[in-house]
Simulated scan of single mutants.
Amino acid sequence: MVLNAGCADDQVGLFVAALAHRIEVQPPGGRDEVVNALLAEEFLIAAGGLQVRDSTTGTVVTPGCCAGLEDWRDWTQVLAGDSLWLGHDPGPEVEVVNDDLRVWQDGGENKHRGRWAGVHVDLPRRALPGLLNDAHRDLASFLNAVTGWGTRIGLQQRVTDLVEAVDKNFNITAPMGIQALR
């Protein structure tokens, strides 16, 4: 699911439903009870994360099991030379290849004689700050979509609370603090 200002109400509703997936809601379990349960949670998580897509070939690497959108800022660790955990099963991994990052879909299980093999996307390391800033902008604009959705479905004062909870748990509006690489 792509999250940005262009999300339709059904897409925002799907995102909220994904947030509520692991939360137990008492019957009757309608929209208001779900939103109240979300607002009562200490941590909100959303399975997934940032996809890496090669716009030329269409190849996509998706986060593995147990990776979450709440960890999207961890991609900045790669800029500092640190490793990045993208989940397991299938175990995506990032390999540094000269000035590029090679993002493997199945890095853990698909190594052959010390080398990876299979589906991957090559990403110029210098492009990563711009891509992360784009993701930051899209996620921040998604908060506007959440506001509009919440207003249209009648959440009243809880709209602000829900937007603040999503912002806080996914660390959206805090400054990125990264510069373009030369």
Rank of each mutant, 00 (worst) to 15 (best):
L3M: 04
A5G: 07
G6R: 15
G13C: 08
L14K: 09
F15C: 04
V16M: 03
V16W: 00
A17S: 09
A18L: 15
A18G: 15
A18Q: 12
A20C: 02
R22V: 06
E24H: 14
V25H: 01
G30D: 09
D32I: 06
V34L: 04
V35T: 01
N36R: 14
L39Y: 00
A40P: 07
E42R: 13
F43M: 12
A47T: 12
V52K: 03
V52T: 09
V52E: 04
D54M: 00
T56S: 13
T56N: 11
G58I: 07
G58L: 08
T59H: 07
V60H: 03
P63W: 01
C65N: 15
C65M: 15
G68K: 12
W72Q: 07
D74H: 11
T76C: 10
V78M: 09
G81N: 02
S83C: 05
L84R: 04
L86N: 01
D89Y: 13
D89E: 14
E93Y: 07
V94Y: 00
V96L: 13
V97Q: 13
V97N: 12
D100L: 08
V103L: 05
D106C: 11
D106L: 04
G108R: 14
E109N: 14
K111N: 12
H112G: 07
R113M: 12
R113I: 10
R115Y: 12
W116D: 11
A117H: 12
G118Y: 07
V121H: 01
V121W: 03
D122T: 10
D122E: 10
R125N: 08
R126H: 10
A127W: 14
G130D: 12
G130I: 05
D134T: 15
D134C: 07
D138V: 04
L139G: 08
A140I: 03
F142K: 02
F142T: 03
N144C: 11
T151V: 14
Q157I: 06
Q157Y: 10
Q157P: 14
V159Q: 00
L162H: 02
A165M: 09
A174V: 15
A174W: 12
M176W: 01
M176E: 01
L181M: 09
R182K: 15
